[in-house]
């Protein structure tokens, strides 16, 4: 089955096509959702909402860019919506020093994705969101400012604080050079 056939199947609401699409992308998308939340249960709720949107709007996918990129944008937007709705997005300076999580890493251990995920999830919501959008999704500070309704400079300062906090956490868990 080609990707085009898969998309057409989903447009026609064929359960088999929908299930295959879910199978192909859900584990990657769950990882995306995990980055925007503090725990897996929240991430699973986002994944569920996000995929319902994907299936109800798939006829709007115009093939500009990859299908995966399109689905990922829906997931990220779903995550941002949830943060906005629950008024969890605050960009104040008070929460700068959050608790440093214990990752159980020993010096010399190879850093793994799950370790970094734990660190990201430990960040305050504002830091985590800006860090994700900038470092991993690759948005510019200008775009992040527009998405989150903050100024470009707030986005920059949130990012640099998030970055230095992550760096601190990494040094605590692994004294050696990270590369």
């Amino acid at each position: 089955m080609s990707e085009q056939e898969l998309i057409e199947g989903c447009i026609r609401n064929q359960p088999a096509a929908q299930e295959l699409l879910f199978k192909i992308f859900s584990s990657k998308m769950l990882a995306v959702c995990c980055r925007y939340t503090t725990n897996k249960a929240e991430a699973e709720d986002l994944l569920q909402d996000g995929f319902i949107k994907v299936f109800s709007k798939i006829e709007l996918f115009r093939g500009q860019g990859s299908l995966e990129g399109w689905i990922k944008r829906i997931m990220v937007n779903t995550a941002l919506d949830a943060l906005r709705r629950n008024k969890k997005l605050q960009f104040n300076d008070l929460k700068e020093d959050s608790e440093i999580p214990h990752t159980g890493l020993k010096p010399g251990d190879q850093l793994q994705a799950k370790d970094l995920m734990m660190l990201i999830q430990a960040l305050p919501n504002g830091f985590r969101t800006v860090f994700n959008l900038y470092a991993i999704e690759g948005y510019s500070h200008k775009e992040i400012g527009e998405l989150l309704g903050i100024s470009e400079n707030t986005s920059k300062s949130q990012y640099s604080r998030a970055r230095s906090q992550l760096q601190k956490m990494l040094q605590l868990t692994e004294p050696q050079d990270i590369r």
């Binding site: 879910f22 859900s26 990657k28 990882a31 699973e44 860090f131 470092a135 991993i136 970055r163």
Partner: peptide, 27 residues
């Protein structure tokens, strides 16, 4: 930006195992 590169390298294509129950909820 080494921190950004490190996180992007390890997390951009990361995948988490999905509980099959979620598909049932989506359906």
């Amino acid at each position: 930006d080494e921190i950004a590169e490190l996180f992007k390298d390890l997390l951009e294509h990361h995948a988490e195992p999905v509980d099959p129950a979620i598909w049932a909820k989506v359906q």
